[in-house]
Write a protein that binds this DNA or RNA. Structure first.
Lengths: 140, 140
DNA sequence: TACATTTGTAACTATAATTGTTACGAATAT
DNA sequence: ATATTCGTAACAATTATAGTTACAAATGTA
């Protein structure tokens, strides 16, 4: 199984921030996600670089959203992680084989289209949508 | 980076088989992929289970396609690997938090839609398409 | 100013997924 | 019979990711 949980953690953290106007500390977020505060800081660093959140050191510091949750698309969140494409290509297919010598380019093109399809899907959902759905589930 | 190359290896192997009517041994395929024959056998086992290829032990044995390459969709190939969804969810969000207690279900739904978008994209490409593209690149 | 709080980040360990390797039995063609 | 080839278990090696510790820097408040 894939152990990369950074995307899920990012969405979780942003949803918490969307639900709270006061800043949340890494420790509070880590408590809800069930991980170490450093893992949260590490993950949030990418979100900050992309302008989705800001952080403040010191007493009463923590994390805040920089945008209306309606304006945060999940594809923005994904991109902030700086991940490669989800489908990986083997490193050294045999150059002297007619198939091996050309398959990397072919796979790159196909996997890029697939990645775009994934991104288009993530473009349809905002952090506001996530929060609304979480709240709806909470009422049931 | 994601190190799971099984999907790329499977496509590579099937493309080799599509280009050759005689059976190919795990060793030959491994030579083109640049890996160990056991890795090939392991990967091909899933493809066989799904009825995409057959294998034969012994002298002049090896692997053959069970279908016209035009009828092998990349989504079939992907499914034969038995992978989880490409987007993973963190294991134990805090149940007693209004967000943490409900986010898993929300993420499952979103990630499932995204996975389907990916599959729809992979449904548009066949092994015959891959072989044609590889050959076209070889002529340039 | 002193102190408590909180982030930023480096350094390291732990865990888990994946690949790579060795070994050997079973199947099969000649 | 013999050589070939797959099937698979067992294990080692590599890599990605998460988790942890430690401490400097920033910041609010008494």
């Amino acid at each position: 199984m894939n152990t990369n949980q950074r995307f899920a953690i990012s969405i979780h953290a942003l949803t918490l921030l969307a639900a709270n106007s006061a800043p949340l500390t890494s420790e509070m977020i880590a408590g809800s996600v069930d991980t170490n505060p450093v893992v949260i800081r590490r993950t949030m660093a990418g979100l900050r670089q992309r302008g989705l959140v800001k952080s403040k050191s010191g007493a009463h510091g923590g994390w805040k959203l920089m945008r209306d949750p309606k304006q945060i698309l999940l594809c923005d969140v994904y991109l902030s992680l700086g991940e490669d494409t989800v489908l990986a290509i083997h490193a050294h297919p045999n150059k002297y084989c007619p198939v091996g010598g050309n398959i990397k380019g072919t796979l790159q093109e196909i996997f890029s289209v697939t990645q775009n399809a994934m991104m288009d899907s993530l473009r349809q959902v905002t952090i506001a949508d996530v929060l609304a759905d979480v709240r709806a589930k909470g009422k049931k």
